[in-house]
């Protein structure tokens, strides 16, 4: 019986999908421990409380709502202080975060404040008594480490997409709470949030990713992969570092060792050689398709299906075929 606190991540007033993943993961952990309560911290400007129900739907027994103008933007100092206080006063055995940019900023702060252990970017976990046994990819995904985490409380962050949201409806119970420090007094202040491709699905949330490489030859040719993504309807566009270095796509689209780690159900690599640093960010994708004119390109070594040929000839035909298949 272990009670668990989770941080439900939001951005610009919207819950992020990883918040539901963290709720689902925490629910599993509570059930593994013989049934405990999952409490979710939901922070934001006035109105964020309306997002609490989605957390209850995914297994949160209670949603602790932290509404304050000082949480309009991400406020790491006030959040870390408040969550650390809650961990102490609420007697939680575990805390669960997402291994997203926010979660990987916030969870180490909380761990350090409490002086407890953190295992990050977890892809799988189980319990051995009260000890967490967790898997975490290291060395750019080329090695999987299994770690054991002792001490109470202990903290986990879950790799995005490794735990898909599962509905497990609980009656909505929410409680308004206040921050343990003044949220307007933080030294570090987010003064602006520049949303990238607004309206477009994020790489981390997309079940399908179409990624383009230097083989596309010019920024305007990304229209090819954009059109293919549109044909799927639920796809996002990614890129290699060769492409982001050229400035053809923003750095936030980069997939790989120094970019995003993704594992969609379908990854289509177009004009991408498959350098090891790129593979590091996408090798865990469920199905990989490669389109490349060089039959010896390393991408074919990890692709489930390949077409050796000219992307400019193949992709438009594929786009048409997907449109038809989806119609």
């Amino acid at each position: 019986m272990a009670n668990i606190l989770i941080f439900a991540e939001s951005r610009a007033g919207d819950l992020r999908k990883v918040a539901l993943e963290a709720t689902t993961g925490a629910r599993k952990l509570a059930d593994m421990s013989g049934g405990g309560n999952v409490h979710a911290v939901l922070a934001g400007a006035a109105g964020i409380a309306s997002k609490a129900d989605a957390l209850a739907q995914h297994g949160a027994d209670k949603v602790l709502v932290l509404e304050h103008a000082g949480f309009t933007q991400y406020n790491p100092e006030a959040l870390a202080a408040t969550i650390a206080e809650l961990m102490k006063s609420g007697g939680y055995r575990y805390a669960v975060f997402s291994a997203s940019a926010q979660g990987r900023d916030l969870s180490p702060r909380v761990a350090a404040k409490l002086g407890v252990g953190l295992v990050a970017d977890v892809t799988h976990f189980s319990l051995d008594g009260e000890t967490i046994v967790a898997q975490h990819p290291v060395n750019t995904g080329k090695v999987i480490a299994t770690l054991s985490l002792t001490g109470s409380p202990s903290i986990l962050s879950l790799r995005p997409s490794a735990f898909q949201p599962e509905v497990n409806a609980k009656p909505l119970v929410s409680e308004a709470i206040t921050a343990s420090v003044d949220p307007s007094a933080s030294r570090v202040k987010v003064i602006e949030l520049k949303q990238g491709n607004t309206g477009k699905i994020d790489l981390g949330d997309a079940p399908i990713i179409i990624a383009g490489g230097r083989g596309l030859k010019a920024p305007e040719n990304f229209k090819l992969v954009e059109d293919l993504a549109d044909a799927f309807g639920n796809a996002a566009v990614g890129a290699t570092r060769a492409v982001t270095d050229e400035g053809w796509r923003p750095h936030s689209d980069q997939i790989g060792q120094t970019g995003r780690n993704v594992s969609p159900s379908l990854y289509i690599a177009v004009g991408i050689s498959g350098a090891i640093q790129h593979l590091a960010g996408m090798r865990t994708s469920h199905t990989i398709v490669a389109i490349n004119k060089d039959k010896d390109a390393p991408i074919f070594k990890i692709a489930d299906y390949g077409i050796v040929g000219d992307a400019f000839e193949i992709v438009p035909v594929l786009t048409e075929a997907i449109r038809k298949a989806k119609a």
């Binding site: 990819p137 999987i144 090798r283």
Partner: peptide, 24 residues
């Protein structure tokens, strides 16, 4: 230290894929 490595392993190899053709 509250974290110990209990195991290191290589991820499962991806089975070699199939080349379906050389054009659309």
């Amino acid at each position: 230290s509250r974290v110990t490595i209990t195991k290191m392993q290589l991820p499962p190899e991806r089975a070699a894929g199939r080349i379906l053709g050389d054009s659309s």
